[in-house]
């Protein structure tokens, strides 16, 4: 994830403090990014969920390898080996570690390939929603007045829309011809409002800070104040929100696919696999468990990581201690 790359870069630039800080009369402290990174590094939940995310990403990247190892194509149908003579999918066994589906396709291979769609759609729609939300939220919060009123109403309208109804209508209109781009567009459209609202609120409070007044008193223009002074303070909440938006986008994508809006059928997708599994879960539990488990693991890992990142930026003990010493 690129945002974490930036974070790491920030940390790398951090100067190391001398051991004898108190001798020089310096209160030993670290920069905000460094502090967050240090906390994250020591957070077991963050490490665990990062490992899971890396594993899922590995599944996506190495899906062709899984295909090669099992000898099963992504959507090849193995009616002889994958189905019993009665036409029922076979359960987990040596040839089909996670079993087969009703067409005799290898679920393991399909779950691996499905990770590609989930991650791609999840990450890119979250990124798009965050980008749009930050830009619009900043404009609304910074300029206020008519701009704010108009944009804030737009956010409200987007948030008030019943997205499931909208999605069903969309399925009815273009069902079956959807594609990954439509997925991303729909998901980010329904997600950016929440981001924009949060960013707007942040900007409104940052705008009142003395350092913003200081920038104005130095003669800084609007663009400079927005990007040099306000934006860096939005990064922490935006990173947190991004990491929480990824899992909800993945779920959203699965929902759309479940409803029939998404990548066209032969391409494996966790959501559409679950949909197809509906009729088969009774004999073929593996048909539900593995795609569902992958979806659950991914979203859980992203959510937990998001929580950890938030705690790292704004830990409770820090606030507590600030009050004690003030």
């Amino acid at each position: 994830m690129s945002t974490f790359g930036e974070l790491v870069e920030e940390v790398a630039q951090e100067p190391q403090l001398g051991a004898a800080g108190y001798e020089a009369g310096v209160i030993e402290a670290k920069g905000p990014w460094r502090l967050a990174w240090d906390r994250l590094r020591h957070d077991r939940v963050a490490i665990g969920s990062s490992v899971v995310i890396v594993l899922i990403a590995g599944m996506a990247v190495f899906a062709p390898l899984a295909s090669a190892l099992t000898g099963h194509g992504m959507d090849a149908q193995y009616h002889l080996t994958g189905l019993t003579s009665a036409g029922v999918p076979v359960g987990p066994r040596a040839h089909f570690p996670w079993g087969a589906d009703e067409e005799g396709r290898d679920i393991l291979v399909r779950v691996f390939y499905g990770a590609r769609i989930s991650l791609l759609v999840g990450v890119s729609s979250a990124a798009l929603a965050v980008a749009g939300g930050v830009v619009l939220g900043m404009l609304a919060g910074f300029f206020g007045g008519v701009v704010d009123t108009a944009l804030a109403r737009l956010f409200d309208v987007v948030l008030a829309m019943p997205y499931l109804v909208f999605a069903l209508a969309l399925v009815a209109a273009i069902g079956g011809q959807g594609g990954i781009l439509i997925d991303i567009a729909v998901i980010s459209f329904f997600s950016f409002g929440a981001v924009a609202r949060i960013v707007r609120g942040q900007v409104l409070s940052i705008k009142e800070k003395e350092y913003i007044e200081a920038a104005h008193s130095l003669g800084a223009g609007s663009l400079r104040v927005m990007f040099i002074d306000i934006f860096p303070n939005l990064l922490a909440p935006v990173i947190v929100y991004f990491s929480l938006l990824v899992p909800s986008s993945i779920v959203f994508e699965a929902t759309l696919a479940f409803l029939g809006l998404g990548v066209p059928p032969p391409t494996p997708d966790w959501g559409s696999m679950l949909q197809e599994a509906i009729n088969w879960y009774n004999p073929a539990w593996w048909y539900v468990v593995f795609p569902g488990g992958a979806l659950l693991a991914t979203t859980l890992a992203f959510n937990l990581l998001g929580d950890s990142v938030r705690d790292a930026f704004d830990p409770r003990y820090n606030r507590l201690f600030a009050r004690e010493t003030e």
Binding site: G21, Y22, E23, G25, V26, I27, E28, T325
Partner: peptide, 9 residues
């Protein structure tokens, strides 16, 4: 300045 309370001198 006053010393840090983490590992004071």
């Amino acid at each position: 300045q006053p010393p840090s309370l983490i590992g004071p001198p």
